[in-house]
Amino acid sequence: MPEQGSAELAELLRDRGLRLTPQRQLVLDAVRQLVHATPEQVHAAVCEVASGVNITTVYRTLELLEELGLVTHVHLSHGAPTYHDAAVVQHVHLVCRNCDTVTELEQSELAPLAERLLSQRGFRMDIGHVALFGLCGSCA
C-alpha cells in the first residue's frame, strides 16, 4: 500500500505545486497503519522510523493531508482530534467513557436518523464526524 499511497500523495502534492517529502509520506503511512490516531500517536509512530521529525511537522502535515482529502478527523474526546484514512468507508465512532475503547458502527445504522434530520430540519449530518459516547459492553 505505501507505493500506491506514495503515487497518490505525490500527484496531489504536485497539483498544488508542492513536493512529496519523506515526512509527509511517513505521516500518511502512520495514519493508515494506526487506523485511529491522535497527532501525538502519529508523531510517536513516525519517530520510530525518523527520529528527527518534530510534532509541529506532524500537525502541519495532517492539516495538509486533510486539505488534500487523504485523511479526515473526528473528535473522540475533549483532547486532540483523531485522524483516519479518508478512503475508509465513513463510520460512526462508539467511544467508551470508562476504558476509552473506540469501536465502529456502520453509517447505515444512523441512516434513518440522518434521513429524518434532513426531511424535518433540513440538516445534513456528517456521519464521518459522529462520535457517540457511553459505556462499552465490558464496562457496562
Score class of each variant (00 low, 15 high):
Pro2Val: 09
Pro2Ser: 12
Gln4Phe: 10
Gly5Ala: 14
Ser6Phe: 09
Ala7Ile: 13
Ala7Phe: 04
Ala7Gln: 09
Glu8Val: 14
Leu9Met: 05
Ala10Tyr: 08
Ala10Glu: 14
Ala10Arg: 15
Glu11His: 10
Leu12Phe: 06
Leu13Thr: 02
Asp15Asn: 14
Asp15Gly: 07
Arg16Asn: 06
Gly17Asn: 12
Gly17Cys: 10
Gly17Ser: 10
Leu18His: 13
Pro22Leu: 11
Gln25Trp: 07
Gln25Asp: 06
Leu26Val: 01
Val31Pro: 03
Val31Gly: 04
Arg32Cys: 13
Arg32Gln: 14
Arg32Tyr: 08
Leu34Gly: 13
Val35Pro: 07
Val35Lys: 13
His36Asn: 15
Pro39Ile: 00
Pro39Trp: 06
Pro39Gly: 15
Glu40Thr: 03
Gln41Met: 08
Val42Asp: 14
Val42Met: 03
Val42Gln: 11
His43Cys: 01
His43Met: 10
Ala44Trp: 03
Val46Gln: 13
Val46Thr: 07
Cys47His: 02
Ala50Gly: 05
Ala50Gln: 15
Val53Met: 03
Val53Trp: 08
Val58His: 10
Tyr59Gly: 02
Arg60Cys: 04
Arg60Gly: 02
Thr61Phe: 00
Thr61Arg: 11
Thr61Val: 02
Leu62Thr: 01
Leu62Ser: 01
Glu63Trp: 03
Leu64His: 09
Leu65Val: 01
Gly69Lys: 13
Gly69Asn: 09
Gly69Met: 04
Gly69Phe: 01
Leu70Asp: 02
Val71Arg: 02
Val71His: 01
Thr72Gly: 06
Thr72Lys: 11
His73Met: 14
Val74Gln: 02
Val74Ser: 01
Val74Cys: 06
His75Leu: 09
Leu76Trp: 00
Ser77Gln: 06
His78Gly: 06
His78Tyr: 08
Pro81Arg: 00
Thr82Val: 15
Tyr83Gly: 06
Asp85Met: 13
Asp85Trp: 11
Ala86Arg: 14
Ala86Ser: 08
Ala87Ile: 05
Val88Cys: 08
Val89Trp: 09
Val92Gln: 06
Val92Arg: 04
His93Leu: 10
Leu94Trp: 00
Val95Asp: 08
Cys96Thr: 03
Cys96Ser: 10
Arg97Gly: 14
Arg97Glu: 11
Thr101His: 14
Val102Tyr: 00
Glu104Met: 01
Leu105Tyr: 07
Glu106Met: 03
Glu106Phe: 02
Glu106Asn: 02
Gln107Phe: 09
Glu109Gly: 07
Leu110Trp: 06
Leu110Tyr: 04
Pro112Gln: 13
Pro112Asn: 08
Leu113Ser: 06
Glu115Gly: 01
Arg116Cys: 10
Leu117Gly: 06
Ser119Leu: 14
Ser119Asp: 14
Gln120His: 10
Arg121His: 12
Phe123Ser: 02
Phe123Asn: 04
Arg124Trp: 08
Met125Ile: 15
Met125Cys: 13
Met125Pro: 07
Met125Ala: 08
Met125Gln: 12
Asp126Arg: 12
Asp126Leu: 10
Gly128Arg: 13
Gly128Asp: 11
His129Cys: 10
Val130Phe: 02
Leu132Asp: 15
